[in-house]
């Protein structure tokens, strides 16, 4: 049984339907990347899984349990965490406050979890009392991921984690993603420029025009010439 199973999902914004039947699976301890052109519905899919957009048709199951229609705090409690692409930090709060809010739903969360995030992102520790709004894009991304990892999620969903980051920073972020995965957390990543991401993924999906159009192992997608030409900016 897969950890997350998405079947025939239709959803969108108001009257505008964007997803027209998407199927997708993420197994435990797996890294999965969704690639596809702008407007294909990648972010919409993530928001739908997290209950931020209303599902008009289809099922979303997490550990065999239907989660569509659940409130966000229930979904967080079940072990999903989501890092949006933009506005993914609380800018006027400090690094430490941002991280602590990641454990909001569990009032008994042990304090050492913050330390574990600092171990993963050592650059954050000396800056823990800084307001996040004053920090660089790379640091913000670390805070955003750290916040999502506070409750030890079973599945971490990342929307374009390397967008707008310098290449060396993007590499660091992907390193950290691999480290998180080695700790047993499954990761679902949406990426537009996805070579690095696919290289590190067990499997990948290609999403276009609101539908899944291809699925394979990560490296195999990278090797696929058609997809390379269409979605990865040349092979």
């Amino acid at each position: 049984m897969s950890l997350l199973s998405v079947r025939d999902v239709h959803s969108g914004y108001g009257d505008m339907q964007i997803l027209h039947g998407v199927d997708l699976d993420v197994n435990a301890e797996e890294v999965v990347t969704i690639i596809g052109p702008n407007g294909a519905g990648k972010s919409t899919l993530m928001k739908t899984i997290f209950g931020l957009l209303r599902l008009t048709r289809g099922q979303i199951e997490f550990e065999g349990r239907e989660i569509s229609g659940l409130s966000a705090d229930r979904i967080v409690r079940l072990g999903l965490a989501y890092v949006p692409q933009v506005d993914n930090v609380f800018p006027s709060l400090t690094v430490r406050e941002n991280l602590e809010l990641g454990a909001f739903v569990d009032r008994h969360a042990p304090r050492r979890r913050v330390d574990r995030v600092y171990e993963l992102f050592p650059a954050l520790r000396p800056r823990q009392t800084k307001r996040v709004g004053t920090m660089s894009g790379g640091e913000r991304q670390m805070v955003a991921m750290g916040r999502a990892l506070m409750l030890d999620p079973k599945l971490l969903m990342l929307d374009e984690p390397s967008a707008a980051l310098a290449p060396n920073l993007a590499a660091t972020i992907f390193d950290r993603i691999s480290a998180v995965n080695q700790g047993g957390t499954a990761v679902l990543i949406v990426e537009q420029n996805a070579k690095e991401s696919l290289r590190r993924s067990h499997r990948g999906y290609v999403l276009a025009a609101g539908r899944k159009c291809f699925e394979d192992e990560g490296p195999a997608i990278l090797a696929n010439e058609d997809i390379g030409r269409l979605y990865l900016g040349g092979a």
């Binding site: 966000a72 967080v76 506005d87 609380f90 800018p91 406050e97 602590e100 809010l101 990641g102």
Partner: peptide, 23 residues
């Protein structure tokens, strides 16, 4: 306080507060 921080978080970024599980 927990709720005080949640209030500041909501004021700062209501959408992210929701994603974080703040009611």
């Amino acid at each position: 306080t927990r709720i005080g921080k949640a209030m500041r978080a909501t004021a700062d970024n209501a959408a992210l507060a929701r994603v974080t599980g703040i009611n």
